[in-house]
């Protein structure tokens, strides 16, 4: 197997074992967009022993907080986090699915109050049942294809 081509980073956050194809959504969840100033590198469909194929995201110069990182479990429940300092792994952990997610998921129910003009942030209860399932806290609609409703 050919070696991966992204270089090591000096300091920052490495998100590994992201389900193949989901790296762009990971960036979205972390709030990294076209106006962001961090140095970010991303690899998609990298060969992986464990997963067949996987994605990797590296954000330089910044330790992203754990609560924020755990939201990644919504779409990549096997993701692992490496916090890097001076080229060394300072902390390594697996993302843990939170019980509630605020924002991030848009309720698919057009008649849900969370999709109205009210001052409201979407809120979902999430759990693992073969796949990640999210249920709207307001209208109770269940979402199984979460990737499609990430905003």
């Amino acid at each position: 197997m050919k070696q991966l081509t992204i270089s090591k980073i000096k300091e920052g956050t490495v998100i590994d074992h992201i389900n193949a194809g989901k790296a762009l959504l990971v960036l979205k969840i972390l709030g990294i967009h076209s106006n962001s100033t961090e140095t970010v590198s991303m690899a998609m469909n990298v060969p992986s022993k464990k997963m067949g194929k996987k994605d990797i995201v590296k954000v330089e110069g910044k330790f992203i907080n754990e609560e924020q990182l755990n939201k990644i479990a919504l779409i990549a429940p096997n993701a692992t986090i490496n916090l890097i300092k001076d080229y060394e792994i300072q902390k390594k952990f697996k993302v843990v699915l939170p019980e509630f997610i605020e924002g991030i998921i848009k309720c698919p129910n057009r008649n849900c109050i969370s999709n109205s003009d009210e001052p409201i942030t979407s809120k979902f209860r999430v759990w693992f049942d073969k796949n990640v399932v999210a249920q709207c806290y307001y209208c109770r609609r269940k979402v199984k294809e979460i990737s499609e409703y990430i905003y």
Binding site: N111, C112, I113, C136, Y137, R140
Partner: peptide, 9 residues
């Protein structure tokens, strides 16, 4: 209310 979840909100 006509919208679902309105009471919880």
């Amino acid at each position: 209310h006509p919208l679902e979840g309105a009471a919880r909100f």
